[in-house]
Amino acid sequence: MSETMQFLLSGITVGAVYALVALGFTIIYNASDVVNFAQGEFVMLGGMITVFTHQAGLPLPLAALIAIVLTAAIGVGFNKLAIETARGAPVVSVIIITIGASIFIQGVAQIVFDKQLHRFPAISGDDPIKLLGATILPQSLWVIAGALVIFTGLWLFFTKTLLGRAVLATSNNRVAAQLVGININFVMTLSFALSAGIGALAGVLVTPITLVSYQVGIALALKGFASAMLGGMGNPKGALVGGAMLGLMESLTAGFISSQYKDAVAFVVILAVLFAMPQGLYGRKSMDRV
């Protein structure tokens, strides 16, 4: 019983990270219909930049802030230099561009930083807290809280502010949004900045638990995408729920079936969702089926 509880707690923790990656996917997907395969690299950058600025002597909160701002700037630069210049290109070309960006960022991280695994101290120390017969790291609570705060913040932003509604309008109909005077370019910039920043925050929060190296991004992108699909592409609530579910499934698989094959869960989930309910849990009913 306490064993299962332990698996559930660690599942929710990783699930919160997947949810943050999936939220990042969702923001860019909604604003531009682009599926950004470089999303996982933002998480990696968040972790790596914090590690190295912290090692250079900066206090941890400042290092984390620099990492988030820098990653957001990289996201904006990626949008300006690559995505906007290729606007109107076929889906396949855009996918290749974002994959290229992901490989490129990994390659640069390998050179600028190194190929080792890194971590930095947890925010509230490493003493596990007892909870319902199991234990949980204080950092896990930070990760879960982070996911919930970001989700709530995004929800308020998209429903209560004019700017957020402008982003929603753009995702519904680009041309119509432009006609009523919404600055599409700014909306795109904002979306990439938000998405990259959220990714970096996830990296900062999770590094003390799972460690970070230059190559963690692609697996995170795959799992974030699986979460987004499970919840329903483009739906923030779906991203949150999908992430949590995928995290739980992974950790239960690792606990009861095989820890070596827990990474296979994401792939199985993708196939199962595609097969049984391509619109996901909360997705729009209209799908581009052929």
Binding site: V35, F37, V91, V92, I95, I99, I218, A219, L222, F225, A226, M229, Q260, Y261, D263, A264, A266, F267, I270, L271, L274, P278, M287, D288, R289, V290
Partner: peptide, 22 residues
Amino acid sequence: ILRLKGYYLAVASLGFGILVSM
């Protein structure tokens, strides 16, 4: 997968490749 749009194949095949090498 192939009943759906382009990026689903990209993601699913990415997962498939990782699974095989795993």
